[in-house]
């Protein structure tokens, strides 16, 4: 312990470093808080004073409006949650199942499947080709699969998982299981999986965040409102001012008086708060898994 005190930076340097980090941390968080604050500000205060970090006039109008006929929002939540769960489960299961044989020294087809995977990292067909394949050959346009399939898998993650397997599973472990007469699948589920849980947790979380935050799939392939995700609602509201009016038209006819006073500015920001709230709230608890996943990935075998 003493060693650290000897080698610690001077008091002044410590204050400067801490000060720097406090400023930088604020710079990372405050911009998001501006969005949150605007969503709680009354429309008239926004019009008079512009956006501000502390609401000049507190108001829940935006949230009242969003949830007054909450079908649009809840539907988008439903689609997003469904896509996130199904997509990341298929992703993690298929990636782990592919990575495991690759990590086995005795697997004779290892080099073939290695190259098969490597090619996908080197050559890319690009957006146009993927788009044409997904639309004309697979017929994904305006189906829920368009939100899932294009983001499945991922060559680099598979290599990361494989490396973790290699480093953490001694071949004696597998040999012992074979001697005991366990089949490959049983060995994998009962002996291998418990050992490699950490990397699977990391990759699963990357996948979950990836699906939740994905907006490109929906931008390319979705035009029916019933398949809009949260990200889609947000980006449409941003690019097209009339979007809120159109998609919430049911709310409007039900609430004639809102027609004139649609709190457009704050509703857009409220939509962002509703969309990223869960992710931002969950993130600090899972942070260590992300760091772990990244760190494991940095040292390939």
């Amino acid at each position: 312990m003493k060693k650290y005190e000897v080698n610690a930076v001077s008091k002044t340097a410590e204050i400067i470093i801490n000060g720097g980090f406090i400023l930088f941390s604020l710079a990372c968080v405050l911009p998001l808080l501006l969005v949150v604050s605007v969503s709680f500000t009354s429309e008239s205060a926004i019009m008079d004073f512009g956006y501000s970090f502390i609401p000049k006039e507190f108001s829940l109008d935006a949230y009242d409006f969003l949830f007054s006929d909450s079908e649009v929002i809840f539907r988008a939540y439903g689609v997003t949650i469904f896509v996130t769960i199904v997509g990341s489960l298929i992703s993690i299961i298929s990636m782990t199942l592919y990575a495991y044989p690759l990590s086995r020294e005795d697997f004779p087809f290892k080099s073939f499947f290695n190259v098969y995977l490597l090619i996908t990292l080197l050559f890319s067909g690009g957006l146009v080709a993927s788009y044409m394949v997904n639309v004309t050959i697979l017929g994904l346009k305006n189906t829920v699969w368009a939100l899932i399939v294009p983001s499945l898998g991922g060559g680099f993650s598979i290599f990361v998982i494989r490396t973790y397997f290699k480093k953490n599973i001694p071949s004696e472990l597998i040999e012992a299981a074979v001697i005991d007469g366990a089949g490959e699948f049983r060995t994998f589920v009962q002996i291998i999986l418990p050992v490699v849980q950490p990397i699977i947790a990391s990759m699963l979380l990357f996948s979950i965040f990836g699906y939740w935050n994905n907006w490109t799939n929906s931008l390319y392939y979705i035009s029916t409102p019933k398949l809009y995700t949260l990200q889609h609602l947000m980006q449409q509201a941003m690019l097209n001012l009339n979007f809120i009016r159109q998609s919430f038209s049911d709310n409007l006819s039900a609430m004639e008086n809102f027609m004139k006073l649609l709190p457009e500015q704050s509703v857009r920001m409220a939509m962002v708060v509703v969309g990223v709230g869960p992710i931002v709230a969950a993130y600090p608890f899972f942070q260590k898994y992300f760091i772990q996943g990244l760190t494991e990935g940095s040292v390939k075998g």
């Binding site: 298929i90 299961i93 298929s94 990636m95 199942l97 592919y98 495991y100 044989p101 086995r104 697997f107 087809f109 499947f113 098969y116 995977l117 090619i119 996908t120 050559f123 890319s124 067909g125 690009g126 146009v128 080709a129 993927s130 044409m132 394949v133 050959i137 697979l138 399939v149 294009p150 499945l152 898998g153 060559g155 598979i158 089949g183 490959e184 699948f185 994998f188």
Partner: peptide, 24 residues
């Protein structure tokens, strides 16, 4: 058993990466 394990991901890679290569 190991080969069967690799089937799902092989199909995904084929759809997402190999088919678009023909699309070039």
């Amino acid at each position: 058993a190991l080969l069967i394990m690799m089937i799902p991901c092989s199909i995904i890679l084929f759809i997402n990466s190999y088919l678009p290569l023909f699309g070039l």
